[in-house]
Simulated scan of single mutants.
Amino acid sequence: MKLTVYLSGEIHTDWRDEIARGIAEKDLQVTLTSPNTDHASSDDCGDEILGTEATPFWKDHKAAKINALRTRKLISDADIVVVRFGDKYKQWNAAFDAGYAAALGKSLIVQHDPALTHPLKEVDAAAMAVCETPQQIVEILSYISRN
C-alpha cells in the first residue's frame, strides 16, 4: 500500500529523520512531506519574496500566509497526518495543523511525551493513535501497510 504522510510539528529534533530511517529499513511505500523546517527561511519568506516589512506583525503575517499555501496543499494531499509536540516550545502551529487535518477528515497520529497528555487532551481525542516515540509511528505505518 502506498501512503503519503505529512509530518507536522516541532523542528528542533531529528524525529522526522528517525521516521524516514524506519520507513527505509522496513522498505515501506511511504512518501513523507512536511512544512518548511528551516526556521529562518520560514520566518523570512514573506520579506524575501514580497518585500521587507517595518513591523514584526506584518512580517509574520505575510510569512504565515505563504507557509499556509504549502501546509494546506500537503495536508490536503496526505493520507495520514502525523503531528509531534515537543516539550521545549509551545507548538501552536502544530495544534492548528492537527485541527485542520481533523476538519478535513484526515487520519491523524499524534506524538508527544506523556507529560503533555492533559494540555493536549482535545488534540489526542481527535487522533486515531497517540504515540510517544517516532518508532511507534513507524510501526503503525508498517502495520497498516501490510497486504
Rank of each mutant, 00 (worst) to 15 (best):
K62N: 09
V82I: 07
K59D: 05
C131S: 04
H61E: 11
N147I: 10
V123C: 10
L116G: 03
E25I: 04
A24P: 05
D60M: 14
M1F: 09
A64E: 07
V30I: 15
E10G: 06
K65T: 09
F57C: 05
Q111N: 05
Q136T: 06
T71W: 04
K90H: 14
I66T: 01
V5S: 05
R146H: 11
C45P: 00
A40M: 10
V130Y: 06
L32I: 13
A95L: 11
I66A: 07
D87H: 08
T52R: 15
W58D: 13
R146I: 11
R72N: 15
R16F: 01
A64V: 04
Q135T: 11
A102V: 00
V130D: 06
F57Y: 15
K26M: 11
E25Y: 03
A125T: 02
D79A: 01
D113F: 03
V138H: 04
D97P: 03
V110F: 00
L108S: 02
E132F: 00
T117F: 04
K90S: 13
D87Q: 14
R72Q: 14
N36L: 10
A20I: 04
R84K: 14
S34D: 03
R16L: 08
A94Y: 02
L108Q: 01
P134D: 08
D14P: 03
V82H: 00
A101E: 02
G9E: 00
K2Q: 15
T52P: 00
D14F: 07
H118G: 13
Q111V: 11
G22T: 05
M1Q: 12
T37N: 12
S145V: 06
H39N: 07
L120N: 03
R70I: 06
Y100R: 02
L7Y: 01
N147D: 12
T37E: 04
A63C: 07
K26H: 15
N36C: 13
A95M: 13
A102D: 10
S41V: 10
L104V: 08
G22Y: 09
P35M: 01
R70L: 09
L7Q: 01
A54P: 08
A63T: 09
G86D: 14
A102C: 03
D77R: 09
K88R: 14
S142G: 15
A115H: 07
L74Q: 13
P56F: 10
D97W: 02
K59Q: 14
A95C: 10
R21K: 15
A24Y: 10
L3E: 03
D43P: 01
A98M: 03
R146A: 13
A40S: 12
V130S: 06
T133Q: 07
T4N: 08
D124S: 15
T13H: 11
A78M: 01
A95F: 05
E25L: 11
K26D: 05
F57N: 07
L28E: 04
A98T: 02
L104E: 13
I109A: 02
A54S: 14
L3A: 08
D43K: 15
T71A: 12
S34P: 00
L7T: 00
A103T: 11
M1H: 15
I75L: 04
D38Q: 14
A68R: 06
L74Y: 09
P35F: 00
D113W: 01
I11M: 12
N147M: 10
D47V: 06
S145L: 04
P119K: 10
A126F: 03
I75H: 02
A94I: 04
G51M: 06
